[in-house]
Amino acid sequence: MTGSGRAPHDVRQQFDLDLKGLGTSAARAFRQRSQPRLFCPGPLRDDRALGERVNEEMLRWAAETGIYPGRLDKLREADFGRYMMLAHPATSDPDRLLAATKCLVAEWAADDYYVDEVSLGADPMVVGSRLANLYAVVDPPSLPGGYASQKDAYHRLQPISTAFRTAMEHLARYASVTQLARFRHQLAILFLAWTQEADWHVNRRTPPVWEYLVQRHLNSYLPPMILMDVLGGYELPPGEFFHPEVRAAFTTAGNAAVLINDLYSQKNESETDHNLPSVLAAEERLTHREAVFRTVEIHNELMETFVSRAARLSATGSPALRRFFADTWAYLGGSREWHATSGRYHDSKEGKP
């Protein structure tokens, strides 16, 4: 589908329909196939012109910050502007989508340059200190005397610091104090997860499946997902957002979303990187094909759990909570579509898998 996308009330209506049509019985049917299919919605819109507009503005910002020097063509191919357009159909405002895209690209750049890509300077021995220093941009400390100027001098030499600072300044135009606080909180969780990943690399250790899934719970897609009500122009009240049952449903959706990344990114990863298929193969002595199918089954189980929890909570929660879960459902479909088509994971000559 092309165009400007459905209005928020249509997104909620689609969520209701999908809950009926893709409930747990349908998910179980997916699981029972010899080659399981992903239990995931499709995108609610694909406005290519809007995505391209956001992408072009993001590229200008990336050039100004200095991230990905000499690699902006690769950043263009990744099409992160389209990602946020697909994942956040509740808004057609290009500037709101740009704010979210900047935050997403800053996070991705930190992962590439500090954690994953040795060719870009990643070093597992210093991941912890780099991320702690970067978090000082996310949640600035008050340092005494000349120490503040030394800190500022350090960050002026770090393009990723500039990316985070300017991205959050843009986000602050639309986010409330509470929404910014929970975004900072989720980034702290993300940075912690990256230090755990560095520990695996330093110690040349393949984690057991349960530990890998814990890390993926921390290193999930919640940072970009958490901006849903910011982009939608409303705010889920803190009492509902942080309610344990709502948090459990939302984090389960984030965990499912990031396993889509494991499926699509694995062919681009080095032999020392970890993903769910690789740790499943190592622990359970599976072939690669079997490990991929098992990953799909785990993803589908998480999606079943999210749908069940979201349906129950939506029936008794506020209109804002109902909208929040509808936006979560929409995010899952848009995210899956981006992973299936992005130049980050597929050559331009490849069709959609």
Results as ranks from 00 to 15, higher is better:
S270A: 15
L192A: 13
D273S: 12
R182M: 08
S25D: 11
L180S: 02
P94H: 04
R216W: 10
L104C: 08
A110T: 14
N55I: 09
I67K: 03
R31F: 02
F306Q: 05
L180Y: 04
L192G: 09
P94E: 05
T2H: 15
K20Y: 07
Q13I: 13
Q196V: 14
V126L: 04
E57Q: 14
G233V: 04
Y114K: 12
D46N: 13
H155A: 05
V137Q: 09
V296Q: 12
D95Q: 15
W108Q: 09
P140V: 03
S314N: 04
L97R: 10
R96Q: 03
S220Y: 04
E297D: 13
R289T: 05
R204V: 10
F306V: 04
A175I: 03
N261Y: 08
A122G: 13
A340T: 01
R71A: 03
T166W: 01
S119T: 15
R294Q: 14
H243D: 06
P353V: 05
A106P: 03
T295H: 13
G333Q: 14
E64D: 12
P208G: 14
F242E: 10
D273E: 12
Q266E: 14
D73E: 14
G232Q: 04
M125D: 13
A63D: 09
S129E: 07
A315K: 07
L302S: 11
S119M: 12
Y221L: 12
H88R: 06
L276H: 11
Y221Q: 09
Y221K: 11
F325S: 03
A100E: 05
G51S: 06
R182H: 15
S25M: 08
R12P: 00
A27K: 01
S161K: 11
D46C: 13
A326H: 05
C103Y: 14
T195E: 07
S265E: 11
S265P: 08
R322Y: 00
H201G: 10
A330Y: 03
